[in-house]
Simulated assay, not measured.
Amino acid sequence: MVFAYTGNEDAKKFFCGEISLDTIKEFAQDFLEDKLTPSYKSDPVPESNDEDVKVVVGKSLDQIVLDESKDVLLEIYAPWCGHCQSLEPIYNKLGKYLRGIDSLVIAKMDGTNNEHPRAKPDGFPTILFYPAGKKSFEPITFEGDRTVVEMYKFLKKHAAIPFKLKRPDSSAARTDSAEGPGSSTGPEKSSGSNPKDEL
């Protein structure tokens, strides 16, 4: 196997298919002239992806995360990571809480099996926010407490498309953009849960 690697800064890998003197020469020339398409690890694209937290793989990141019409929060996790396992139920509650907002996508990607140049983890879990209309810029890293409340506040602050929660019960009339998980009707700050969150 012959491959080229651009280094840790942009971490692009390129693989040469057939191994012969001519193909290796052509591969090397194309690499130097930046004509090659990089190769990234990717799980298969899920056949169904209708959960509250969308599953992203290397091959689907462009379509889901880099969609300019959506604000996207992406968790990059490792299945063996204890902190990721602790975050999972909280992150799922966030996805459930925000599921009625069409302009906002809550997503996750297994960083051990999937790669993409626009989603580089700095340890596990890494939570990145990609504002709508600004996908050419670096994503914003979430570094707050990993609670529904703190992630909600982060999203309200950074979302390019303002959003309001849609509540199916009678509290919908009271819900406005100022209310959310941090209000008296939202989840408790300590656990990120509340009976109303269990819709």
Rank of each mutant, 00 (worst) to 15 (best):
V2H: 05
F3V: 11
G7C: 07
N8P: 06
D10P: 02
F14L: 12
L21E: 14
L21C: 03
L21P: 02
T23V: 08
I24T: 10
K25R: 15
K25I: 12
E26D: 14
E26C: 02
F27M: 11
F27W: 09
A28N: 12
F31T: 04
F31V: 10
T37I: 15
D43E: 15
D50C: 02
V53G: 03
V56K: 02
D62I: 05
Q63W: 00
V65E: 10
V65T: 12
L66I: 03
K70L: 01
V72C: 12
V72T: 14
V72R: 00
E75Y: 01
Y77F: 15
W80P: 06
W80S: 07
W80K: 07
C81H: 01
C81F: 11
L87P: 13
P89G: 11
P89M: 15
I90R: 02
N92Y: 07
N92V: 10
K93S: 08
K93D: 13
K96H: 11
Y97T: 14
S103I: 09
V105T: 13
K108D: 06
G111C: 06
T112R: 06
K120E: 03
G123T: 02
T126C: 04
I127E: 01
I127R: 01
I127F: 04
I127Y: 09
F129T: 10
Y130G: 02
G133D: 00
G133F: 00
G133E: 00
K134G: 01
S136R: 11
F142C: 04
G144P: 10
D145T: 12
D145V: 05
T147M: 09
V148H: 04
V148F: 07
V149P: 02
V149K: 03
M151K: 01
M151W: 02
K153F: 08
F154R: 13
K157T: 04
P162Q: 06
F163T: 13
F163P: 07
D169I: 01
S170T: 02
A172D: 13
A172L: 01
T175H: 01
T175N: 05
P181L: 05
P181F: 00
P181R: 06
S183I: 05
G186M: 08
P187R: 06
E188H: 09
E188D: 07
K189I: 06
S190Y: 07
G192M: 13
N194S: 13
P195A: 13
K196R: 14
D197E: 14
D197T: 06
E198N: 11
